[in-house]
Amino acid sequence: MVFSEELISELLSMPKVVMNPNAKAKVQKKSERVTYQVESADGEKSFEMYTRQNQMDPDAYSCGLVYHPKRGEKVTLVRYNGSNHVHLNPLEDGELIVNRCHIHRATQRYMEMGEKAEKYAETTDRYDHLSGAMLCMLTDCNISGLELPPAGPENPYEPQLSLGI
């Protein structure tokens, strides 16, 4: 199924509420994970929001919003990534994003090419840690009902595991 740009924008901007704001973090396979259930304010649409923090590389983190349509496969609408890896936008002349924070966004043009919906990404300087990325996502995607813990550059994430370098 291909989503139009209008539908993607509508899904991103519609008011949404986190249904389980007290969801617990758990560590699984060396990353800390939290998954939230999110609904549109009118209760008609279901989403899932997640955070991931790698325990070995502080710059390897992600938070994203996934739409669960009533029919068809789920679609990642956005994902806010850390700066630990390189990203390539193949439809933008192979534009490379080299070790910078970037935001993936679902686009009609990539879906029409049969690519993964959120394959396109743009660089950003709006955050440099997971809590900052979450704050951006909550604002950008009109999501309420979640109080973020006080964290940020003043309390930088420290990797709990070492590569032994």
């Binding site: 396979k29 060396k30 390897a60 992600s62 994902r79």
Partner: peptide, 20 residues
């Protein structure tokens, strides 16, 4: 050399999948 993915592959798979 030890060459590792630092568990990023599993983290990436977990975005849209329940690893369990």
């Amino acid at each position: 050399w030890r060459i590792s993915d630092a568990a990023n592959t599993m983290m990436r798979l977990s975005y849209e999948n329940d690893l369990a």
